[in-house]
Design a protein around this nucleic acid. Structure first.
Lengths: 150, 150
DNA sequence: TTTCATGTAACTCTATTAGGTGCGTGAGGA
DNA sequence: TCCTCACGCACCTAATAGAGTTACATGAAA
């Protein structure tokens, strides 16, 4: 149901790429994400422009990670995606004449801006490498056979 | 440009209603908000159901505030509106089989849920009365010489 | 009984992400 | 050389959700 899944998808694919030697095609990535190859290229264009990966055309081409995952934060990816809108909630009018609405805007904007600053700061603290490490941990848990889980 | 402006608009209209004796029609409210009367009724239905105001049909009818503004928080209004989605960002798949995606989801969901909890907690601390008071302050600043009512 | 105002159903409009087709471009391989 | 693969991009459609709009029923007051 959520609208913008680009950040989530890029984290997912970057970790897969890190565990895969050699270039990966948009077709393969789309298969991993359950998405469309064109959407993959479209979304990854920003990460390429930001220098986190490269793309090569033709035979044996595809996408290659160029940056260690522990040097990329969630905030880096969010910004590489063009810093999409974070909140679904917003102000009715950004520059109203009504003083009441100005007061409402001041209160709401301050609260939302503060929440956004905190969230982006948190995004800046979490590296994709840390998530990849958590994945490794989940792997060992599943294969160690401690709890009977699917 | 933002999508969901209902909270913002409800704060705006509640403060106006608090400064206005007697019922206010949807038509009048729509004029204040630069919005549509039907949209106003649709949005305010939730606040009525939550008991913050009443509505009366027919001649001399309209909307009346029944609760002091310093007893209503932003969180109250948000919940009266049905607790709409706060974030425009979401997970690609809520229950993925891929362990990588599970790790991504765990990291992203924890960060977003934490941000949402903090934001809602903050909403719970801000009363509409406080915003109305800030408006009064803005009035005295603008009309420093002669006090005028809007 | 006429008028006014809410209550709702059932549309359209708008913005945004996502899905999809087609074609151009460039890099290898046969 | 020629063909195939894979990205790049233009341009469409689909799905979603808030907002706008029309139409009509309901109920209360003049």
């Amino acid at each position: 149901m959520p609208s913008d899944t680009r950040l989530s998808r890029m984290l997912h694919v970057l970790i897969h790429m890190d565990r895969h030697a050699g270039p990966v095609t948009s077709e393969t990535i789309a298969g991993m994400l359950g998405a469309n190859p064109v959407v993959v290229r479209r979304t990854m264009a920003g990460l390429k422009a930001a220098g986190y990966l490269t793309s090569v055309k033709g035979h044996g081409g595809g996408w290659t990670l160029t940056t260690p995952l522990d040097q990329i934060t969630l905030r880096d990816i969010h910004e590489a995606l063009g810093s999409p809108k974070i909140f679904a909630i917003g102000l009715a009018d950004d520059d109203p004449k009504c003083l009441v609405e100005q007061a409402v805007n001041a209160a709401l904007a301050e609260t939302l801006d503060d929440a956004e600053r905190r969230l982006l700061a948190r995004f800046g603290e979490v590296t994709i490498g840390a998530i990849a490490h958590d994945f490794e941990h989940r792997m060992t848990e599943v294969c160690s056979g401690s709890p009977a889980e699917a």
